[in-house]
């Protein structure tokens, strides 16, 4: 006898939730393609293929059913987020290796879906960044800023055969990200307003990048509206980042970039709506989510300004992931009828 009340359910399945997240990434990806060409699509395709193949293999080894766990879509979300986090002209094996690392070390060593302590995409990203710092800091400049026009076929060629290209060619089409550029120029005692005259800066963040971030923002708002994610994380993260930057910026506008720049450059928007909102590795209590978002924003700011890397999202998220269970246990909401 199956005494399984309640007998009725009304919930989107895990697959539906995950595919809605993928759907919400599409405007950002479309704008990415518009500004930077098709490289990112190649990366997403490679990542998706890798994730499906690897995860099937691991599930088979672990003697788990393959179909429901592939169709749950969580692997694809990880793959897409990683593909969007790495430079779009990175050689093909970077994304393949990164996805492998995500799935193996970020997800399945902990027991697979629902058991990972860390955000899998960020695990892969952090390992790549530490291991291949040179490749991981070669960001493509927007196609409209390139001196020689690059056909989309060329981009695929670059991704597939980057080791054949000369350093000069790569340098011509890549640059540091705006965050990185500011950081290095500041060490040379350049004032910020001079630094930001470089062509890679746009009206909000980095040229091209700000468009992509607006796309992510649109997708994020869709997720909020559809109640796939709760408001606590993005709001606490973005407001903290904004106001911290505002405080520093108002003290010394020559050395600290504007709050809007901090919010609209790097991975801030992607982080706010898609990365820290990964339910498995984030706290679950409303208060905990707010603390989590605030702490990550502060860490991101600290790493961006004082740390060894220009962007701190991956490390901030991974670091706070460790504390998610603790935050949860300390922020238990008041239970009905309790003091």
């Amino acid at each position: 006898m199956d005494n399984r009340s309640p007998y009725i359910v009304d919930a989107p399945s895990v697959s539906v939730i995950m595919f809605k997240v993928l759907l919400a990434l599409i405007p950002g990806i479309a704008l990415y393609v518009y500004a930077f060409g098709l490289g990112v699509i190649v990366n997403i395709t490679l990542a998706s293929l890798t994730v499906v193949l690897t995860e099937s293999a691991i599930l088979a080894i672990r003697k788990l059913p393959i179909k429901p766990f592939i169709l749950d879509g969580s692997g694809l979300v990880t793959a897409w987020l990683l593909a969007l986090s790495i430079p779009s002209i990175a050689p093909w094996w970077i994304i393949v290796l990164g996805t492998l690392l995500c799935i193996i070390f970020g997800k399945h060593v902990y027991g697979g879906l629902g058991y990972n302590l860390f955000n899998p995409a960020m695990v892969g990203y952090a390992i790549l960044l530490i291991s291949f710092p040179s490749i991981m800091t070669h960001w493509q400049i927007p196609t409209n800023l390139m001196e020689n026009h690059v056909e989309w076929l060329d981009q695929i060629k670059i991704i597939m055969n980057s080791h054949l290209l000369s350093k000069e060619t790569i340098d011509a089409m890549s640059s540091a990200t705006p965050l990185d550029y500011i950081k290095t120029q500041l060490t040379l005692n350049q004032p910020l307003n001079i630094i930001q005259q470089n062509k890679i800066f746009g009206f909000l963040g980095g040229s091209g990048l700000e468009l992509v971030n607006l796309g992510y923002l649109a997708g994020g708002l869709y997720l909020l509206k559809d109640k796939i994610i709760s408001w606590h994380l993005p709001v606490s993260f973005l407001t903290t980042l904004f106001f911290t930057a505002l405080i520093f910026n108002s003290f010394s506008p020559d050395t600290f970039a504007s709050p809007l720049f901090h919010v609209m450059s790097g991975g801030s928007i992607l982080c706010a709506f898609f990365i820290i909102t990964d339910p498995v590795s984030a706290p679950t209590t409303p208060k905990g989510k707010i603390y989590f978002g605030v702490a990550i924003a502060l860490l991101v700011f600290i790493i961006r300004i004082f740390g060894g890397y220009p962007e701190g999202i991956a490390f901030a998220v991974l670091f706070m992931n460790i504390f998610a269970p603790l935050i949860d246990s300390l922020t238990q909401p008041r239970i009905f009828g309790h003091k």
């Binding site: 399984r4 399945s13 749950d72 969580s74 879906l113 629902g114 709760s230 339910p279």
Partner: peptide, 12 residues
């Protein structure tokens, strides 16, 4: 009932 998946801690 549909197949039981692992808890993803979505807090719904």
């Amino acid at each position: 009932p549909k197949p039981v998946m692992p808890c993803i801690r979505c807090a719904r």
